[in-house]
Design a protein around this nucleic acid. Structure first.
Lengths: 336, 336
DNA sequence: ATAGGTTGTCGAAGCGCTTCGATACCCGCT
DNA sequence: AGCGGGTATCGAAGCGCTTCGACAACCTAT
């Protein structure tokens, strides 16, 4: 293993000079810099992470806490995680992967041990038990998702309220008056994950303004659950002609069932999904959708975090504007 | 920030004693141990990770390198990653998340800097450019997936060859004589990812023994690609009655298309998928499938790695036995 | 010429921990 | 009484790096 001292000796300078070449924190003459860089190359030197962390109290690591559960849309999580890792690298940080399993203890452990300089939390509940800890420590953190009280926190999320509103508006424009919302699994609502409720809020309040009727049904993923849910919906509101789906694993079952029941999409009923682009485009009907911009969310979270680590001021809440893409699953209400 | 020295002072012992209490590397009297532990509690002490790493040359971190691409089945990746993180924690390790983006450089960086004690690589290609580096260094590593040459490496994977054979056997038992294989996207084969080829191998050789005909078609995910592929298959082999699908994003399109063409599953055609349990159970037809045991793979990988780190001997290749679960998508060939 | 300011480099201290003798003590033997 | 052999604890060195203050060398501006 090559050390700083060996590089210094090889280049004929002192250790501190090498350190300053590496960090750029003091000016170094062109000649010296070059010799040092040359030595680093030749010896294949890599600074020792532990020593660096100890001396500088900076680990250059960002902790990312992902949920352990898989009842929510997994690819979104993965995309966010990958975007976080990628973006972090461009800022010189590595990413430590924590699962939600340890809960608040993980926050204590990481904060206390200096394992990471900062952390990003995913799948934040409205009244998350980790939040008090985050407010207490001076270790920077960013949430992906919105808790009930964002004071003293930095959050990044899609503007789900606007997302809900956008869906309603689109359906309203097409002439639909009765809308059904296929939501996430009941567990997601019970857990008080904010995004599902916020979407619903936005949906409902815009619907009220536009005088549409909204029926909301949480739904487990899969074919059977969807079949039962759909039956109940048409039973209760036979006039339903628009669907908003916020549950990836209900999309394909819904389409199959509608087809099976002889309801054509988009001639008879329109369907809008809130899902990643890929899902919308790979479905058996190209779906009109509001995209969940997972990579963007991961990227922004890291950027906020790096800004904080650099001592820059940041906004408290970053809400990404939803974008609706019209594809083949929505159309004007025929007949009336 | 609380340090070891402060704990020592509080407990009235020397720093080294506290260290030994923590590590258990020397015997400590019950009384002293108790006092120290008490002090640790009261002060809320957490050992500093950097200092520990520096002094012991052990970071207690395992690096996990996930592929950057998303052309393969993402939930499997995520499940593996989560299983790795969870299992690692039970052994006292944390997980550093690396993306494939940096390629071999990431291996050098991590190895050189002592950031991690060991690494796990996912999505290994048959002739992966990272392998020479791994063989060179004495840092332990485990691959999830099999390269062409496994000498000097430790690998964990599903026995895809046996998986292929198992699928053929099941279909043969049911009387099917012409089988079509819907494979991964062409890019996956071009990249020489081993698992796809191994499945095919197992499939073909068992088919030869049992005198079945096999037609293999790689397939991009999605509806359109599947439609084109399916048309070609029936064009070429009208008698095809059994399908093996190894491409999660082709499953639902395939089922939809068969339905649409008036081919009943499993009465007219049988379908077996190689996919995670959840996908098999949530599909519009409950799928007979060979499970991809993602969590098990992650767990085993970590266990192998920890064994190596502890200086224990390990097998070179761990192949998990495939398990076929019969559900509603396969049945005896009717008519003949 | 000299005071004052830059610029480039060095030496040393110290980050918080682990670990290796060394030491002190107690026990049971002879 | 004296000795070998545990057991429990301590002190000090050192892991590889960053960073601060010091200092020499040089450049202006008086």
């Amino acid at each position: 293993m090559v050390t700083l001292a060996e590089v210094a000796q090889h280049a004929g300078v002192s250790a501190s000079t090498v350190s300053y070449v590496l960090s750029g924190k003091r000016s170094i003459s062109a000649g010296t810099r070059q010799r040092v860089e040359q030595s680093i190359q030749e010896l294949g030197y890599h600074p020792n992470a532990g020593a660096r962390a100890l001396a500088s109290s900076r680990s250059n690591i960002i902790a990312l806490m992902v949920p352990l559960r898989t009842d929510m849309y997994v690819p979104v999580m993965m995309e966010i995680a990958i975007a976080v890792a990628t973006t972090a690298r461009t800022h010189g940080y590595d990413v430590l992967l924590l699962t939600g399993e340890e809960g608040p203890d993980a926050v204590r452990r990481v904060t206390g041990s200096g394992l990471a300089d900062a952390m990003i939390l995913m799948d934040v509940e409205l009244d998350d038990e980790r939040l008090p800890l985050l407010r207490d420590t001076d270790q920077p953190s960013v949430l992906i998702g919105l808790p009930a009280d964002t004071s003293g926190l930095t959050c990044v999320d899609l503007d789900f309220r606007a997302t809900g509103a956008l869906c309603v508006e689109h359906l309203a424009t097409l002439g639909h008056r009765e809308i059904a919302v296929i939501g996430e699994a009941p567990a997601v609502y019970e857990r008080h994950t904010g995004f599902a409720e916020r979407t619903l809020d936005g949906l409902r309040s815009r619907a009220r303004e536009l005088e549409l009727r909204v029926l909301h049904r949480p739904c487990e993923g899969g074919y059977d659950a969807m079949a039962a849910t759909l039956a109940r919906i048409f039973d209760e509101r036979p006039g339903t002609s628009g669907f908003v789906v916020q549950n990836e694993s209900a999309v394909e079952p819904l389409l199959a069932l509608l087809r099976q029941q002889g309801r054509a999409v988009p001639e008879d009923v329109s369907v809008i999904a809130v899902c990643p682009e890929q899902v919308a485009m790979q479905a058996s009907v190209r779906l009109t959708s509001v995209a969940i911009p997972a990579p963007e969310m991961g990227r922004r979270a890291v950027e906020q975090l790096v800004a904080k680590l650099d001592g820059r001021e940041t906004e408290e809440v970053v809400l990404l504007a939803p974008e609706l893409t019209v594809r083949a699953s929505t159309g004007p209400l025929s007949g009336g």
